[in-house]
Amino acid sequence: MKSAFAKRESRSGMIFTIPAALIMLGLVVYPMLYGFFISTQKSNLIDKWEFVGAKYYIQLLTDAEFFGTLKTTAIFAACVVIGNLFVGLLLAVLVNQKIPLMNIFKVILMLPWLFPEVVVALIWKWLFSPLFGMFNYVLFSLNLIEKEVDVLGQPGTAFVGVVFVCIWKGYPIVMLMMMAGMKNIPHERYEAAAIDGANKWQQFLNVTLPGLMPVLLVASILETAWWFKHFTIVWLMTGGGPAGATELISVDIYLQAFTNFNFGRAAAESVIILFLLMVVSFIYSRVLRDESQ
């Protein structure tokens, strides 16, 4: 009972989306199915396959340590995502004003994004080094500390430290998305708000924020996915320590897969993450969609 219009719509939609779908099918779906498959196998991935069913899932879901790691990962991801969204949005709004020097700041503020994660992690680690790093040296010179501060050596400060560095590295992409998003908010809305006497803050609340909702939704979902799975910066800065304070789930996956040669368990962990993140994304889209309406 479809109208001709709907049919044409449907066909056009498919034509536009098929190229991307094909590439993703080949390159992501197959590996994911492969992941599902090996999560049920005890295998050397070459010539020895033994079906073990849900063994690894049961092992994981009855493992208190696994849940501890999940919790740390969730708190870490939440801190970084909120930090990125806050800093990114704030800076995007600031540089979007029509006042001098903003084009220069736009470039400067993007700089952290251009660094490879490896380099970001190592520069900061080097900077925080109690003996050879600039951080302690400066604090000493200013007489702010008596004894070297080992930022990455205490659980509390180490966690704050890696979150800080991850925000340092991660906010620019949010800022960029917000800047692009703001360009599509029609000027008339601001003008209308200004005529109504709204000040900058009210304009932000009533015009900018609602206008950015679609972009914010995308940003929150993807940021959550990325940081939940994050590996490099934390691995290089603290290796999950001290005493597991920064131990993330991806560190464990790496360890299981490539150190312990236990691909079944690593794959099972990945599948659990996949489902967890799907649920989170679903909740996001519900909440944010309602808010924008």
Partner: peptide, 9 residues
């Protein structure tokens, strides 16, 4: 205190 500061890193 026989280990240089920053032993965990």
């Amino acid at each position: 205190g026989v280990v240089p500061p920053g032993h965990t890193t």
